[in-house]
Each structure stands twice: as C-alpha cells, then as structure tokens.
Design a protein around this nucleic acid. Structure first.
Lengths: 255, 255
DNA sequence: GCAAAAGTGTTGTGATTACACCCATGC
DNA sequence: GCATGGGTGTAATCACAACACTTTTGC
C-alpha cells in the first residue's frame, strides 16, 4: 500500500467518522530563550509547514478534539486550551496552489469531501520544557519556530497565527499566561522576558517586580539560578491559590 | 402539501445546499425602556421560544450567513455582529425532549442529517427602534424579551444567552456598545441606563457624565428631550471619529 | 408648590510611571 | 577588576470612587 493510498484511506475514514466541513487548527505557544515560540508540523515530503490540526469525531466534543490534537503533538494533557476564532470565509486560501505545494492527492472535489473547510482556531499555552514534539501520519517533522520568524506556511495559517497572537496579547491580563508558559521554577526576570515577548515591548524591571510581588502569586524558593556571569537571581514558583484569586479579580494588568 | 411535508422538504434542501453539522445561533441585543432585550422566535405551533439561527450555504462565509440570519429577522444590514463562542459539546441538550416540545417531525437520525449539531454563537447589537421583528418559516412569532425575564427556551439557548451576556459585559470597554445599541439621538442618562443594564449595577451619574465627557465621543445638540416631569436633558449624538479613536485606545472603561 | 430627574465639582485614595544606584557572579 | 544582569525605593501623576446641592420641568 503506497503512502498515497494510505492518505486516500485516511480521508475516507475521516469522511465516515468525523464531522464534515469543520476542522481544528491549534496554535501552540511556548516560551524559550526569551522568545515566543509556536509549534508547527512539516507536511510530508515537502518543505511546507502548517499548524497542527485535525477533525472532530461525530461523538466527540470540539474542545475534546482540540485536546486530542494537542496531546498527539506534545504528549501533554490538561493544557491551557482556548477557542479564539472561527475561520469561515467562503474562500480561505488558494486550494489549487495549496494542493500543488502539498504534493499529495487531496480529497477536494471527490464528492464526499466538502469543497471548502471551516476551521475553529484554538490556542494553547504550554511549558516548552515538557513538550516532546511529535510528527504524525501527515507530517515528517514537528518543531518549534520563533513566532516572528515563521517559515513558509500552507493554507491561511500565517493569518491564523496572527489572530492568535493578537488574542493572546488582549488576554494577557485575564488569563493565566505565565502559569502555563513558564516551567515550574523560574526567575522574575525570566517571567518579565515572557511578558515582553508577548507584548513586544520592554517593561521596567522595578515596576514589574513591584507589581508581581504585590499580587502575591509567587513563592520565592531558597534556590537561585546560577551559571550566569552576574548576580544569581532567586527562583520562584506560582502560588496556585493566589493566582486563581488574582485572575478572578482581573488584577494581572500590564497593558 | 402539509406543513410537516414542507418542513421535511426544508431540511432536505438544507442538507443539500448547506454545511452539515454546523449551525448558527444569534443573540440579538437591543435596549429599550432601561432594559436590555434579546430577540427570540417562537417555534411554530408551540409555546417554545429559541434564538434566531440558521445554516451556512456551502459557498457562503460564516460571517455572511450570520448577517443574513440577522437581516431576515430584523430587516437591518451592516449590524455590529461578532462571534463569541463555538458550542460544540458532544451532547448539548436532550434531543428527545426537544423533539417532543417542538411537536414537529425532526430530521434527526434520518441518515443524511447528523445526529449532533455544533453551533457558532454570534451576538449582535442593534438599535431597537429600527428593528422590525419578523418571523420565518419555522416560527409563528418574533419578539423582544427582557434578558432577565426569558420564557421557556428550546435547546441550550438559555446557556448561549448567558455566555453572550458575559461576553458583552467583558467587551463593554472595548467594543462600540453604545454606538450600536442607542438610537441616533439620546441623552446621557439614557446612555447611563444602557451601561447599567449591561453591567447589572447602578453607576454614579456625576462620574459617568465626567467620564463620557472626557472622551469627547459625544456631540451635544441644540435640542432637549421634553415630556418628562422634570428638567429636560440635552440630546447627544456620537462623534464617530473620536469614538473610533477612543475604542482603539481602549479608553471606554466602566468595569 | 412639589415631585422627579438633570446637571455639576471637589477631594481622597490607589495605581502607574519614571527614574539611578549598588550588589553578586563568572570570567 | 570588570562586565553583566539582579535587586531595590521614592516621588509625581493620573484615574477612579465617593459624595450633596441646585435647577428645571410637568402636573
């Protein structure tokens, strides 16, 4: 059985068992080395990348389907995962061009397969250090990219990432961004780098420290991060109880 | 041809021409007599109400489909219309119970019709005075209801309205709520009633007046609203240029 | 005249911003 | 010892919340 046959077989299975005409695209954000990252997969046999995505089983909730896609690519469960936009334009991208770039028999126009696909966008925030990027049946590779240095993307996925980033910025104050993107232990300057990476502008270290401290959402550990050619910063971890309270009160403001 | 036959015919047409398994529900907010209103339709031959909704033609954008549904129920075009949530639980409501309450042959389980429906929620803000509520093929009646005094609703539509209201409250500061819900000319106390209706709590008249004035988004007209047994308030209208600026700056804050 | 709502200003408080120096570490 | 980044406090400004009385109108 050639890969091409397998692919056709795959689309037949999807057409039988999944909701037709609706798909998911997941923008998975991570944070590493002062940069905001996004997880992409490389389409099999090509140099084209795209967002991890998938279909929804007929008896599965849409949120659960998004969780499943994320688990398959990252190995993580219980992620921070959130709807952000339904991409439903009548013509979202150049189907012909995309088909050629994917170098694969695509099911478009086959009768059972719809000629256009509506896609629900989810974004996820994950701890970069805990992710094991894993390719799937349709892809050769799965890897992180700097959100400001993206490769050539299939479909309208660049636009989807832009909308996700815009949403992330708006929700920075109301959502547990730090909690989900940082590793368990981290320093305050590292957390500041995350906020700076998301907002795209520098923040004042003293004001950041003061603000974070005033929220009582962090616990200082009796450990320091050593190795840098400078004063060793303290390590912190989130105080979950107080973090929840601060979120409910909408106090996490860095606009 | 009986109505029942027509209904079956309708669902067959939808199955042929529309995206299957995905529908729209529109929460249309209006403001009248100091109360926040929502537009509902009464299911034909029953006392059950539900949100105006519809399906998406295969070649139509989802946003355009929502605009179409709204036009059909209100007669308005160019409405403020916004996605707010995708309702995609595997089991959203008791299908059997709903079917009985609708007293109609429903297409569920007919083979071509999917056994579950995912629904995209849109909310719209409209000028109550300009709306002509119009029933459709599936409904006997279309009318406004106080958002806090809703009748018995089909499906999970009460929950959808709750989510829409929550979204509206969150977006009160960032979206042109007043511009879309108020008639062309209005008084500042009337605008204050709208904010109070959305937020569900009273606001201080002096602070409200001061805040609104400081934004320079209103133009005072040389007219007053007469007829009340009290001092006649000035009429105002929105200064669109400055309104847009204030929105971009995120200044419209009444949290 | 009287009831009902409109219109208006000041003050206190809390949050945000701007800003500069010393300290610890690795090399 | 020196370069690098970490850690810390104060003062000015701004936005928001609390608060009371006079004016206008219809009846």
């Amino acid at each position: 059985m050639t890969y091409s046959d397998k692919l056709i077989n795959y689309y037949e299975t999807v057409a039988r068992e999944c909701v037709l005409g609706l798909s998911l695209d997941c923008v998975i954000f991570g944070f590493h080395d002062t940069r905001l990252k996004v997880l992409l997969v490389r389409w099999r046999g090509t140099k084209e990348w795209c967002l991890p995505g998938g279909f929804i089983y007929k008896t599965e909730s849409v949120d659960a389907a998004a969780g499943r896609v994320l688990y398959e690519r990252t190995g993580l469960t219980q992620l921070f995962l959130q709807q952000f936009h339904l991409f439903g334009d009548a013509v979202r991208y150049d189907v012909e061009n995309t088909w050629q770039r994917q170098k694969m028999p695509m099911p478009f126009g086959s009768g059972t397969w719809p000629s256009r696909t509506i896609s629900m966008g989810y974004y996820a925030l994950v701890d970069y250090t805990k992710v094991t990027p894993t390719a799937d049946f349709l892809s050769d590779e799965c890897d992180w990219f700097d959100v400001f240095e993206l490769p050539s993307l299939l479909y309208d996925h660049r636009q989807i990432i832009n909308v996700a980033l815009k949403t992330l910025r708006l929700q920075l104050n109301w959502q547990p961004i730090g909690l989900n993107l940082m590793p368990e232990k981290f320093t305050i300057p590292e957390l500041q780098r995350l906020y700076e990476a998301v907002l795209g502008r520098p923040l004042d270290a003293r004001n950041f420290h003061k603000k974070i401290s005033s929220l009582s959402i962090l616990t200082r550990l009796n450990e320091r991060r050593t190795g840098g050619a400078h004063k060793s910063p303290y390590l912190y971890q989130f105080d979950l109880t107080n973090y929840q309270k601060a979120l409910v009160n909408g106090n996490l403001i860095f606009v």
